[in-house]
Computed example of a mutant assay.
Amino acid sequence: MLGMVALAGAGLAGWSAFAARKAEELAPADGLFMHLPGGRLHYVDLGPKDAPALVMIHGLMGQLRNFSHSLAERLIADHRVILVDRPGWGYSTIKGSRPGIAGQAASVAALIEQLDLDRPLVVGHSLGGAVALALGLGRPELIRGLSLIAPLSQPVDRAPGAFVGLLAPAPLRFAAAWLGAAPMGTLTRPSMARAVFAPDPVPGDFVTRGGGALAIRPKSYMAGSFELLHVRSEMIKLRARYAEMRVPVAILFGAQDRLLDPTLNGEQTAREIPGATLTLVDGGHMLPVTHPDVTAAWLRGIMA
């Protein structure tokens, strides 16, 4: 019996490794790498180097192709657009302990400094919005403002239904990542994508051009599980400092977002951050992919 269990485990781990390689073939690294004390960041640098800069930070189970799918191309004619894989996501790696929201914000700050960017506008989508908020509070001198797209900006009591499968306790996280993430992810990816995008349709090329294939890797499961289990306590600390925000903050939300509540994460946050504004548009959670024209026009208005 033990031999059969070991054989089954080895088979599942082998399948996970195979699926991860195939996912990386579908959505390979397409940027540059910057070595930092906490690991290595994968980023893409687009547009004129002397143009006003934007730095874009993706959300949970995402990577930088969430922005390059549709949004970045609408801005690069006259803006420098930096897309970054958050630490532990996409093709960014970590060294030592896994960083939380504040640690990830510090890595983005280091990227801004090493690229010698002149006070870029920081764009954060979903959980990337939380990282952007931490950056605005921790290093306001580096940036001109925050543009938050469907951000996680408030503590929430329970994970969105699409992500409950990530809630493995820390002692079981590694085993769940290598024995279950790829097989289950392969089976549930279509329904999970529909839940994240709803009510908007999922683009047919999101798996490749949008980087969706990378979500089934064990690495992604490990990162997602860690963030879901720690994010509430971090958001409580972050929210307590909103009155200290000294950079302009603008929030864009899809009125039909089914992943994060626009009233809680949009309206309430806009009230709590001095001078923050909220814009509601028709659409769901993945506005940079499904409504890139609206999102780009909103960003251009803020930059202007």
Results as ranks from 00 to 15, higher is better:
1 M>D: 10
4 M>P: 00
6 A>R: 06
6 A>M: 10
8 A>G: 14
9 G>Q: 02
21 R>I: 01
26 L>S: 13
37 P>F: 02
37 P>A: 03
38 G>N: 11
39 G>D: 08
44 V>M: 01
46 L>S: 12
56 M>K: 11
58 H>M: 05
59 G>S: 05
59 G>A: 01
59 G>Y: 09
63 Q>S: 09
63 Q>N: 15
73 E>T: 06
74 R>K: 12
75 L>V: 03
76 I>C: 06
76 I>Y: 00
77 A>N: 08
83 L>D: 01
83 L>W: 02
89 W>D: 09
90 G>L: 05
91 Y>Q: 02
92 S>R: 06
93 T>G: 03
97 S>D: 14
100 G>Q: 01
101 I>L: 14
102 A>Q: 07
103 G>Y: 09
109 A>L: 05
112 I>R: 05
112 I>G: 14
117 L>A: 12
118 D>Y: 06
121 L>T: 07
121 L>D: 06
122 V>A: 07
123 V>W: 13
124 G>I: 05
125 H>F: 07
128 G>P: 09
134 A>L: 06
135 L>A: 09
136 G>I: 08
136 G>Q: 14
142 L>F: 09
142 L>G: 07
145 G>E: 02
147 S>W: 13
154 Q>K: 15
155 P>W: 00
159 A>H: 03
161 G>M: 08
162 A>Q: 00
166 L>T: 01
166 L>G: 02
167 L>A: 01
169 P>C: 00
174 F>D: 04
176 A>F: 00
185 G>L: 07
185 G>I: 02
186 T>F: 11
192 M>G: 03
193 A>H: 11
201 P>N: 03
202 V>F: 01
205 D>I: 00
208 T>L: 00
209 R>C: 00
217 R>K: 14
220 S>W: 02
221 Y>P: 00
229 L>F: 00
233 S>G: 10
236 I>L: 09
241 R>L: 10
242 Y>C: 05
243 A>R: 15
244 E>C: 00
245 M>D: 04
246 R>S: 15
253 F>C: 02
262 P>Y: 03
262 P>G: 05
268 Q>Y: 04
269 T>C: 10
269 T>N: 08
270 A>C: 04
272 E>C: 11
276 A>R: 01
281 V>T: 14
283 G>F: 03
285 H>R: 08
289 V>F: 01
292 P>E: 13
293 D>Y: 03
297 A>W: 01
297 A>E: 14
299 L>H: 06
301 G>M: 08
301 G>S: 12
302 I>D: 14
